Amino acid sequence: MKFIHTSDWHIGRQLHNQSLLDDQRHVLAQIIELAKAHQVDAIVVAGDIYDRSVPPANAVALLDDVLNQVVNELGIPAILIAGNHDGHERLAFASRQMLSSGLHIIGPLSDTVRPIKLTSASGDALFYPLPYVEPATVGHVLDCDVSSHEEAMATLLEQVTEHDSQGLPKVVISHCFLDGGSESDSERPLSIGGADKIAPQLFNDFSYTALGHLHGPQYKGQPYIRYSGSILKYSFSEQHQHKSVTLVELDEVGEVNIELLPLTPLRDVRIIEGELAQLLADGVNDPQRDDYLMVRLSDKSAILDAMGKLRTVYPNVLHLERTGLMAQTEQLAIRSDHIKKGELAMFTDFFSQVAGEPMSEEQQQLMAELLDSLHKAEDCQ
């Protein structure tokens, strides 16, 4: 059994108000070509198909086109589960009617984890789809008492463990946050305070676990407990990540072979920094000047329309930071503190000369507060 594991498509996503639909169409076409080239038996998408629960019409149209090519034109079964960004009921619309075509979409959680048996010339396997759900939902649907994501996942996995696969490999598909996973800025937290973290050891007994949610390709605990990562860089914190899909091959006894298949974006997501004049000169001959860029300018002087000047060379500058001015502001704040301390010291000396005795602690505190309020008033003017 050979399949592609991918996740976190986030169709309809924007990066700093820039639509990424064309970029997503570009890499999704690559996934289709990789599925053809490697003659896979299935494509698994482990959640966050869309970027929000009510996706825009053009995002729905893109997903419809991709699934039509995969399932109808290539005849490759596809399994999709809902992630925390997806609207579970909307994603699962007409899913029962599409089963006969080979398209398996699992939206809302049901009281029984229903395995999907896929067959191939090289061997069969059972896939257990576990869409993202809050612990309270698991407790309600399964009529049990769970209070954390880990307890909820353990309860669901009991059904997978107890199910008789008749010797076939078991593949779990889940959208969750494993403890120790490497995060980025573009992932929406599942809960506050670490209560969303799940021990990787819960998945040790399965042949492969196809995970979604974390955007960097990685595995936790065992190499077969794996995040495929997102198909694009969805924040500048991901600039050093290498995006890919995971090619998984299982033999009859569940031994797994894993290969990362790289994806090439239409435009990269990068951070560049330096002085404006140098960046503009470098950009003239930069073959990647159409990339989505965050620019950090080190110039310490004011610049009129810095963004406009940058976009004459780099048309897709999405965010600008004036790190040079920020550093200068910090130095000014430090000098201001020194001046405040000097003023208090000078007045303390003046007071002792005039009064013939040093200032009391209460008088020094009152004077310090007065000086502080005067400086704040100056800052507001």
Rank of each mutant, 00 (worst) to 15 (best):
G193T: 06
C144F: 03
A29I: 07
V66C: 13
E134P: 01
T209C: 00
V253A: 15
E273P: 09
A82H: 01
W9T: 14
E183M: 11
F236Q: 12
S244H: 07
V253W: 14
A125L: 06
R335W: 08
R267M: 08
K220A: 10
M359S: 11
H240P: 00
T155K: 07
D196E: 15
F3A: 03
D51A: 02
G212F: 07
E259M: 05
D124M: 03
L304K: 14
D185V: 12
L74T: 06
D379C: 05
L318S: 13
K36R: 06
S301I: 15
L142I: 11
L157V: 09
L62D: 13
G123A: 15
W9H: 15
V295G: 15
G308L: 08
D8N: 12
V248I: 10
A302Q: 15
F177S: 15
A29R: 10
K197C: 14
D143A: 11
Q69Y: 03
D372H: 12
M359Q: 13
L320P: 12
S122L: 13
A35R: 06
A29F: 08
L67K: 03
V171K: 01
L297E: 15
P55F: 01
Q30C: 09
S95R: 00
F93L: 08
E252L: 15
G47H: 08
A59R: 01
I258L: 13
V133T: 04
H215R: 02
Y234S: 05
T209R: 00
I231Q: 08
Y219W: 09
L74Q: 10
N72G: 04
G75W: 11
A61H: 06
H215I: 07
